[in-house]
Structure formats: structure tokens, C-alpha cells
Amino acid sequence: MLLVLSGCGFFTPPHRLQVELRFDGRPLPCGTALSLQGAPWYLEHSKFYLSQWQDQEGNSLHLENNKWQTGETVLVSIEQRDCWQDGEMLGNHRVVFDADVDLADVQQLQFVLGIPFAQNHHNPLAQPSPLNLSSMFWTWQSGHKFARFELKSVADSWAFHLGSTGCAADSAMRAPAEACEQPNLLAFSLQRPKGKGETLVFHLDRLIEGIRVSQENSCTFHPNETASCEQLLSNLRQSVIEWI
């Protein structure tokens, strides 16, 4: 009898990538306390959109349509608080391509952290899942939150909400006619690793490097948060996402 244990990580189909959150090089099990600044901090939210998937020749790598994905965009949702339910972690930890995509043939994986302008500013109530989540949407004018990370300690909190800024429209309830001044779309181009190439790793510690996490150092793109936002955007342009 051939036993295939795909759900337990022993076998990953050639058109699927697992997504893993790590801190200091180690996976973050559910409810893990992070030792930051001498105090325990907990991850409240960890969500981000990845889109515009291509191979080394610029060929589009289409995604399977399901509640976590459109044909172009996937929402990764790795929740830590109250995250175990009947032995399963809530959220989405994978990217599933169309069945005809064989990742073994992909030598360079290209994608964007964020949502393209053409899809970013529509009415979320009329959008397909996962583009219809109110928790990941600012306004029609600003569009979606491309990423949402939030940490909390007993005495403090910290948040990073990434999205486009400088979007010109008649009101917050109107979509801009032209691309925003700061699209804040982060492009990644990852070479095929020497390993199996079955997992994308998001390194949380690399995201917050150089940031003293606290409410006053949050970045939700308000005017008084320039220094924190610039540091976080700089960190994101480094090796925050790894293909292993």
C-alpha cells in the first residue's frame, strides 16, 4: 500500500508551495512568545497578499481559484492567537498553482507583495474572496492593506499595515483614476534553492530589524510614522522572503 502524507508535510505536490513564518531562523509554533526588549510579545495578526506570479522567462504562473486565492493573487494568513482549533491551525499557509504548473521547472520565482493597481481599488463587497476582507481594506481611495502584522505585549502593542499611499481621488469613497504616488508594491525574484524548493519562508525578525517595537514605532502610514515606515520598507526589500 502506498501511503501519501501530503497533509503532514511528507509530500508536497509539484504545483504547491508551503508558507512558513520564522523568527531567528526557527518556525513559530502556535502561541509562541517572542522575547523582545526583555518582555514576551505575541503575534496578533500576520497576513499578506502575494500576486503577479511569473517564472524566469516572465511566463505567468496562474493560481488555483479558491477562497484564499484568485487566479493571480493569494492571501497568506498565519495567525498565532487562538490559532488551534480541532488540531488545525486557522488561516492559509500555502500557495496552490494550477495543476499544470510544475515548480520543478521554475528556476526563478517572481512575485509581488501587494495587489496590482487594476485590482486594488474596487468595492471589496463586490470582489471575490480573498479580496473582500474588510480587515484587509482601507478605503476605495487607498485600496487594500497589502500586509498586516501586529504584535502585542501585556503593556504595549505594535502594528505594521502596508498599502499604497498618495492615491488621488475626489474622496475616500472614490477609486483613483491613476496609479498612486507610492504604490508600495514590493517585487521579489528568488532563485531556485539547492533544497527541495517546496517552501516560502517569511522571516519576521528580518522585517522588524532596527525597530524597537512599541505603539509609537508602529507604521500604518500616518504622517508621524515616517521613520518607522522607511525602516520597514527598507527591510522588506532585503531577504525577508526566502525560497527553500
Rank of each mutant, 00 (worst) to 15 (best):
S164T: 08
H93R: 02
P27S: 14
N224Y: 00
G114K: 10
E44T: 11
D100S: 10
N235Q: 15
P223K: 12
L5P: 10
F188S: 05
L103Q: 00
L63S: 07
H45R: 03
W138V: 14
S142R: 04
L162K: 13
S189I: 00
Q127H: 14
L3K: 05
S189G: 01
L34E: 10
K67N: 10
L200G: 05
S35Y: 08
W243Q: 02
C229R: 01
P27R: 01
S153W: 06
E181F: 04
G71T: 00
S46Y: 14
S135N: 05
G166S: 07
E242I: 15
P29D: 04
K47N: 09
R148D: 03
R237P: 08
N59P: 01
K152W: 04
S171F: 04
L43D: 00
E57S: 08
D100L: 08
Q108M: 09
Q18R: 13
E225L: 03
S157P: 00
G25T: 08
K196H: 01
Q231S: 09
F146Y: 06
S135V: 12
E20T: 07
C8R: 06
L109R: 12
W68T: 08
S134N: 10
L233H: 11
P128F: 13
S135K: 13
Q182E: 13
Q127L: 13
A168P: 09
L2F: 10
T165R: 13
F188Q: 12
R16D: 08
P40E: 15
W158T: 10
K194G: 03
N224V: 02
E225Y: 03
A104E: 04
G58K: 07
E209D: 15
